[in-house]
């Protein structure tokens, strides 16, 4: 593999700064004691997509068919082995909700019929100031430097405080072992175990390998993904040109998901 040694070492150095504990660093060095000339190194993939703050635009005008919604949802749920559990203990990362439920307190009854009955795509808002991260007692959910609100399913104790904290209903709890409810398990992504909370991760695993989120990839241009901190990015250009809404702006969470109207 062609690897730019310098950028790689830089990435490794940054990782250390970002809080990779002395413990991990030491253990990674341990094999060196045996025979090798230089210690093992860790870093990011050179092809990884990076940003200062990831954001998603949902172009509600382009979502004209139920099939397109379903295509995005299926892509997401298949990629991440999201189980299909019937009833009120369901698990979902990406789903649709009616207009009134998507924008409570911002909606009124006299909007065009088309809007009133149109479904809207919902997912984790990857807030700038996420209440779920504030309340989590173990840092199992945390905000990354690039704005992604991440979930560490290994650390979650299943207290569900984040579910009470999330104002957007973005989080699902594994009330039971989800595996029997995943059709065609994708072996490249883990399932979850019972008793942990999960949600959309903006496909951080795909970004790390240079791929766009699964839903964006199949959305036929209806979902736009990019760096909100970069003034020249496509998302910033579109936000300058078109009117957009965010869900529940009065709560001060500052979501990274925008709805183009």
């Amino acid at each position: 593999m062609a690897l730019n040694r310098r950028s790689f070492l830089k990435a490794a150095g940054l990782t250390t700064l970002a809080g990779l504990g002395g413990h991990a660093a030491m253990e990674l060095l341990a094999p060196g004691a045996l025979e090798a000339a230089q210690p093992a190194q860790v870093g990011a993939y050179p092809e990884a997509l990076t940003a200062k703050r990831w954001a998603m635009l949902i172009d509600t005008e382009k979502f004209t068919s139920a099939e397109l919604y379903q295509k995005c949802i299926d892509a997401c749920h298949k990629t991440h082995n999201v189980p299909t559990i019937p009833g009120k203990q369901e698990v979902k990362w990406l789903w649709t909700e009616r207009y009134a439920g998507t924008f409570p307190e911002q909606q009124h009854a006299l909007v065009p019929e088309k809007v009133k009955h149109q479904p809207f795509l919902l997912l984790c808002n990857h807030c700038d100031d996420p209440p779920c991260v504030r309340v989590c007692p173990t840092k199992a959910t945390f905000k990354r430097a690039d704005g992604i609100v991440m979930m560490d399913m290994h650390r979650c104790i299943g207290c569900r405080y984040c579910m009470a904290g999330c104002p957007y209903g973005a989080r699902s709890f594994n009330f039971r072992d989800p595996r029997p409810f995943v059709e065609n398990i994708d072996e490249h992504y883990p399932t979850r175990m019972k008793g942990v909370v999960e949600k959309c991760t903006f496909c951080e695993d795909r970004l790390a390998k240079g791929q766009l989120p699964a839903c964006v990839e199949v959305s036929e241009g209806a979902l736009i993904f990019g760096d909100l901190a970069d003034e020249d990015s496509e998302v910033r250009r579109i936000l300058r040109e078109r009117y957009s809404l965010r869900r529940k702006p009065s709560l001060g969470t500052n979501p990274s998901v925008f709805y183009l109207i």
Binding site: T138, A140, C156, G158, C159, N174, V196
Partner: peptide
């Protein structure tokens, strides 16, 4: 009894937040 993963209870002490 409310925890989904009670065996990980000590994470609250291991990763104080």
């Amino acid at each position: 009894v409310d925890l989904g993963q009670p065996q990980r209870l000590m994470n609250v002490l291991l990763h104080p937040t």
